[in-house]
Each structure stands twice: as C-alpha cells, then as structure tokens.
C-alpha cells in the first residue's frame, strides 16, 4: 500500500529540511526543500518501491542540492546571515561555510550522518555506494572540518 503523500510530509519534511540546511546552507535550504517535495509529488504515482520513503526523499534532496551547487558554485559565507557568536543556540556560520567547502560526497555524507542522524547503511543507500565508502566519506569530511573550522 502506498501511503497518502501527506504522510511523507508529516513524517519526513523535517529531516529533509535539516539535511538541506547542512548541504546547501540555511538560506538556500527552503527553496531546495520546496523543489525536493514538488519533484517527489510529481514522481510519486509512478514510484514502485515504498519500503524506504525517507531514503527516497533524501536521495531527491541530495540531487537538488547538487543541482543547486552546479548553478551557484558554492555557498559563499557572505550569503549566510550574520549570527551572533555569543548565542550558544546558534550555529557558527564558519562551520556552515566549512561544510560548504567540502567536496559534494563528503558534504552529503556528513550531513546525512550527523545532521539527519542516519546510520551508515542508510547513508550508503541514499548515496548509492557501499557502507564502507559512506563511512570513509564521513571520516574524511569530519577530518577536513576539524582542520578548517576552529570554534
């Protein structure tokens, strides 16, 4: 049984938005979110497998993020709104810029693993690679972030 599409919105829109906030930067995430769910809704009647709808949505989101980067090159730190550093609830814009500076595979893998909080197996499914390769991308990404980002 294919769930009514509203259930995908109710259950997974938050995760998709979080992934995109990390993958393209918070200011651009909403546009990519809208594009992701519109594309999903258009394709939904033809979708055959419904056992991992969250993974399916995140796969589309990753493609939208790649399209976005192709069109705009990179998230420039200048497009990130100024966030007061002293607020502990806010994310350091430098970290967002550091994530944006990662190669796409590492950026997506890191975002899926830590921001969307998925296990390596699911990260691998979404990225179409082996769990080992997903783990490697995450590790390399984290290593680079440690090098370029200083809190």
């Amino acid at each position: 049984m294919k769930p009514p599409f509203q259930r995908l919105i109710d259950d997974h829109s938050g995760a998709v938005k979080r992934f995109l906030a990390a993958a393209v930067g918070p200011p651009e995430a909403e546009d990519c979110f809208q594009d992701t769910f519109i594309a999903a809704l258009a394709a939904y009647p033809r979708l055959q497998r419904t056992d991992n709808l969250k993974g399916w949505l995140l796969t589309i989101a990753r493609n939208k993020a790649i399209d976005h980067f192709r069109a705009t090159k990179k998230v420039s730190p200048g497009t990130i709104p100024e966030i007061p550093h002293e607020d502990p609830e806010m994310i350091d814009p430098a970290l967002i810029a550091a994530v944006a500076s990662l190669p796409e595979k590492q950026r997506s893998a890191v975002a899926l693993r830590y921001v969307t909080d998925l296990p390596f197996k699911d990260v691998a499914d979404i990225m179409g690679c082996s769990p080992e390769a997903a783990r490697r991308s995450v590790h390399e990404g984290i290593k680079k972030l440690r090098e370029v980002w200083e809190p």
């Binding site: 938005k17 809208q34 970290l95 975002a111």
Partner: peptide, 20 residues
C-alpha cells in the same frame, strides 16, 4: 565538530509546508 553538526539539526527552521 560532530556535536556541533548534531546541534545544527536543532536550530534549522521548520519547512514552510503551507507554501509547499
């Protein structure tokens, strides 16, 4: 770094579902 990334997920604004 990992902790900060996880924290990021808590601060992301909710998607605009009515606009969607």
């Amino acid at each position: 770094v990992e902790e900060e990334l996880k924290k990021m997920s808590l601060t992301v604004t909710a998607p605009d579902v009515p606009a969607l």
